[in-house]
Design a protein around this nucleic acid. Structure first.
Lengths: 347, 347
DNA sequence: GATTGGCACTCGCACGGAATGAGTGCCAGG
DNA sequence: CCTGGCACTCATTCCGTGCGAGTGCCAATC
């Protein structure tokens, strides 16, 4: 790929095709874009581009369509991420400001992203594993029934019910509460387990009766909390929005919409599709067959990581047909991730 | 509608049409069902049924299709809800048993329902307004930053952050916590607000300095809690699943799938569509144009209420094209609602 | 050597008419 | 009231044709 104009032609093809959803011909190209050459010249370039596998013709008498390889070149070299307008920025900030809790933040982000991109938006809830413990609360609902509330730095709250065999006094509970919070507040989840276990079996304590009872309780609480922390089921929590945007692609229902609808049900598949979270404003683009699933060879993913302090705790992005507005999507994804991270910072 | 056989014919038409998705003719009818009469006879009956508006012919040389009115008669008089098989019951119970918290219960129910019916399932989270307060927890995250956790009888947890102007001591917090819980534990949401306000401005207290501080704090906490309780935004929380089942109806994309996809995004629309929750095992069926939305004249809703003690706190059901398996859907909806209510009873 | 206008060629698609056949309505006889 | 027979309707399917968008190639031009 040497020629400079050829790249412009490819860019023009991609832009036109994304806009019109129809194969684009040489004549239409020179008209709509200001390339100062004749259709014939463009045809030569197109022939070369096709030779190199960047575009393809659905059939002889139709225009050209970008291939995955063509889109790839486009996003890698032919596009500069266009910044959001001031108005858009204000809209994003305003929309996210009003959120009352983590659920709300995530669902607002999802709606926002789907509206900005007119695609299906996917937002993963912040992972447990790399966040820190903010507070642990023990509540006696009944003499032998405890509610454990685990509050994380991301604002996420996990709760577990725990039935114990012996009645628990309010004093025991209070002391255990203090003990636990001293031990784990501010500690990363991954390391909190060890701290909890050490409370349950302190090395220096004699084996008399009340101490044993306290330890049994502490052990049970510790185990439940550890279980909640390691609950990777909840790592798979995601929020999906903008499904109705798929309606725009009703024509390619079987090749694009149907597989995507199915993938959206399988959260595990979806998360794998989104890929590893990338930090620092880096947006990942996965085009068509580049992804791990054959059935989704008509689907692209634009994603990035987010989290407080630019540490990528979770992924967020949009999913749609390969024929999508990559620059716009990338800009929107990056902007939402940035604002979302900022909100998590503050909280 | 007098003739007995005509009803059988209608039933046969509905069943066949739902199964084959194609207009059904007189000949096919007598073959597939054991009506002991000739096609000609059936034709006469069909003519009568059409006259009365229960069925209609898409065009002259095609078979017949049930009208909304036809489906209505079918669900009202021609169907006995078939009970779930023992295996299905076990599957339902087993599937719901494993849930760890309310979120999990709801999302499992959704998945379950969509799998049983092969339709789009919608489950509304239990409403705040008619549930009772189980516990209120106050946590000092920082000297001037409080986390309020509101735990309801349904297992639902609402949390709010509250910034206060003056530092709060642990003792003040503890006493306020006790006060609040004494006042509102077990009280219905609707009445809890009054109880909270009375804590904030006790009639018999002198106006000296520390008391005033305590009152300011109490008032702030009370208002935040009341706001959380009256947050009808969270009444609109719903869980949706089985969207990919819409893929089966790819043919009627524009008339059925697209409007439904759009409605699924609009939670308010969806809730209105599901209608008032009905208690006591009563399943509501809303067929096509019977619903409030013209664009959804091709969709039916099968829904019922659920909640602890058979009090309908929320709605759950399935949404799909009018051409749906009503008996099966009704049975599944009823069964899931029943098990779900039972789980809420236990918790 | 790149660019351009000209021109023949390809091929999908839209349009129109004919054949097909499923399904109906009606009628006369049982 | 049911049934077999029969003429009729009309959506769907299948060709065949014409059209036109778009291409590829070539010779001429700058």
């Amino acid at each position: 790929m040497q020629n400079e104009r050829r790249l412009s032609v490819l860019r023009a093809i991609v832009e036109d095709y994304v806009k019109t959803e129809e194969p684009v011909g040489s004549k239409a190209l020179v008209e709509r874009h200001g390339l100062g050459v004749s259709p014939a010249t463009v045809r030569n370039d197109m022939a070369a581009l096709e030779e190199e596998g960047y575009i393809t013709a659905p059939h002889t008498s139709a225009g050209r369509v970008p291939t995955d390889k063509g889109y790839r070149l486009f996003v890698d070299r032919l596009t500069t991420v266009k910044p959001m307008t001031a108005a858009e920025k204000r809209a994003i900030a305003g929309f996210l400001e009003g959120a009352v809790d983590l659920d709300d933040v995530v669902s607002r982000s999802t709606r926002l992203l789907s509206q900005l991109t007119r695609q299906v938006a996917v937002v993963q809830y912040p992972t447990l594993s790399r966040s820190t413990v903010r507070h642990v609360e023990l509540v006696a609902l009944a003499p032998t029934r405890l509610l454990l509330v685990l509050i994380l730095s991301t604002g996420r709250v996990e709760q577990r019910l725990l039935e114990v065999t012996e009645e628990v006094s309010e004093e025991t509970l209070a002391s255990l509460r203090t003990q636990i919070n001293t031990a784990v507040a501010g500690v990363v989840i991954a390391e909190a387990g060890e701290a909890l276990r050490s409370i349950a079996r302190p090395a220096d304590q004699p084996a008399d009766q009340p101490a044993a009872a306290h330890d049994t309780l502490a052990a049970a609480v510790a185990e439940t909390l550890i279980e909640a922390m390691n609950d990777h089921r909840s790592d798979e929590r995601i929020s999906i929005g903008g499904t109705s945007n798929l309606a725009r692609f009703g024509d390619s229902f079987d090749t694009a919409v149907r597989p995507l609808l199915e993938a959206l049900e399988e959260h595990v598949v979806l998360l794998k599709l989104m890929g590893e979270a990338t930090a620092g404003g880096l947006v990942t683009v996965r085009i068509g067959a580049e992804g791990p699933y054959q059935e989704l060879s008509q689907t692209s993913v634009v994603a990035t990581g987010y989290g407080p302090g630019d540490e990528a705790l979770a992924t967020l992005g949009v999913v749609g047909p390969t024929r999508m507005d990559y620059p716009g999507s990338m800009a929107a994804v990056r902007a939402v991730a940035r604002y979302l991270s900022r909100i998590l910072d503050e909280a």
